[in-house]
Nucleic acid binder design. Sequence first.
DNA 1: ATGTCGATACTTTATCGA
Length: 259
Amino acid sequence: MIIASWNVNSIKVRLPNVLEWLKQRNPDIACLQEIKCIDANFPVQAFEELGYNVAVHGQKTYNGVAILSKLPFDEVQSRLPGDESDGQARYLEAVVPADTGVLRVASIYLPNGNPVESEKYSYKLDWMERLQAHIGRLLAYEEPFVLAGDYNVIPAPEDVYDPQAWAGDALFRLETREKFYAMINMGLTDAFRACSDQTHQYTFWDYQRGAWARDHGLRIDHLLLSPQAADKLKGCQIDKDVRGGERPSDHVPIWLELD
DNA sequence: ATGTCGATACTTTATCGA
């Protein structure tokens, strides 16, 4: 079973790229972020024609997440608990049937948080605390789950082309990383890092300053696994070539294979 | 020194977010 995550940066613009990639990679489940459209404008039919069930949590202009699944949805929940006043569409969770029991998957678009002196950064930190609390509840089920998404967190210096240049950024500063480690330390597995010691393997290259041509990238899209999912992990890869395609997203797909 | 992309609206350029 292949489970993927991809920040598409507007599904309206990226639909041809996404359809082409789905046909090639053929994931069982694909978690999308930054669809940047309301539910009614999400191209459900195009995905259904490829055999996917579709769950969407959209928003006008910003954010928006979706899950495409060849397996039917038993359950779908479209908000991260902990703040009823949070209107940003950044979390979508679904349960699908698995060979033994169930598999839970979430599509996550964690706030960017820049600039750090603004309320955007406190919102990011609050959001991470809410996610950590939710992870605690999910772990209690002792079931396989995959939290897939754009975390806007660079876990370690080897995950960025120039750590010094990013030291104070909301994606890399220690306070951010500590919150990320706190989640990992609850018992989650970073699928890519569990499968590879390779440094400087990126999932995002900025559109600006020739970042792609210079390989100035960041590893900020992650697949975090519960112990029960990690036991089934066979491999994890980044589809880097997608960034060199026509009218690409600034992020590329990352995917894992479970037994 | 410069360099991008996508969505929006009192739109055809400026602004915001990333």
